[in-house]
Amino acid sequence: MREGGSRGEALAGWLLTAPAALAFLLLLLAPTLAAIALAFSDYELGQWPPAWIGLDNFRELWMDRGFRTSFVNTLVYVGIVAPVSVLGGLGLALLIEGAARGRTFFRAVFFLPVVSLTVAMAAAWQYLLHPTIGPVNAALRLLGITGPAWLSSSDTVLLSLAAIGVWEGVGFNMVLFMAGLTAIPRELREAALVDGAQRGWDRFRLVTWPLLGPTTLFVVTISLVRSVRVFDTVAVLTRGGPNKASEVLLYTMYTEGFTFLRLGYSAAITLVFLAIVLALMLLQTRVLDRRVHYG
């Protein structure tokens, strides 16, 4: 476009991107490649040089009962948290959107867990769910029910963690859905009214749900990726216990890598984790994206 300035412009472009590019190479690209390389080695901290062992780490993962439990637990956790927090977020957004008053107030209430210190709130939940002195079981006792030991029984621990995960994430989804709802043209809802969509459900099916499509897809992907990354609550509350009933991918990776210092093995778990995240992103962009955009 500007003939004279193009050389200077290119120079400026390189200079301005150079710090970011350098940081990117050193702090993101190189370590990520190193992590991929580590996954094919038997590296343990302090043992140099590591040996290349090909797919041995992955073979071991496949046989490792602890890892399998961790993998299945993560799937179960994601399987609960993602759908519940997506539907819950949508429900809350619709409820608040139609409320006559108190929209800002309720939005703040449900969003508060998103900005709260997860570790501290996990501790608060631990107190709430304490088998003997926790208010939850105390309330159940009033109803004549003996509550379970929520976080220390292998039957309920994953469910309890999932409940905390939903509590933490639903407000985030709600805010995204509220933004999506305000983007729906008012005229379309009015057209649905005039066209004879008498009940709220008819209007939801005819206008709200189809027009929320892109938002929903985004929220679903985000919720899946966020819940695959569950770590804080496990690290604070259960440390994977009891008896590995709450082992999840990132926590297993953490203990293998930073407690047992088996970095190669830990890197292999990281790759499994990365593969899951990438698969979810691919699902969004390649498969579902086409079905929710009209235009």
């Binding site: 043209p185 005229e187 379309l188 009015e190 057209a191 009214l193 005039v194 066209d195 004879g196 969509a197 008498q198 005819l206 206008v207 189809p210 027009l211 499509g213 009209y294 235009g295």
Partner: peptide, 20 residues
């Protein structure tokens, strides 16, 4: 009466067609 029961048809300024 509810809009749906009035048998009134309306053409909106921005047409308000359902995009999907």
């Amino acid at each position: 009466a509810h809009a749906a029961t009035r048998n009134v048809a309306m053409v909106f300024q921005n047409y308000a067609l359902y995009p999907h």
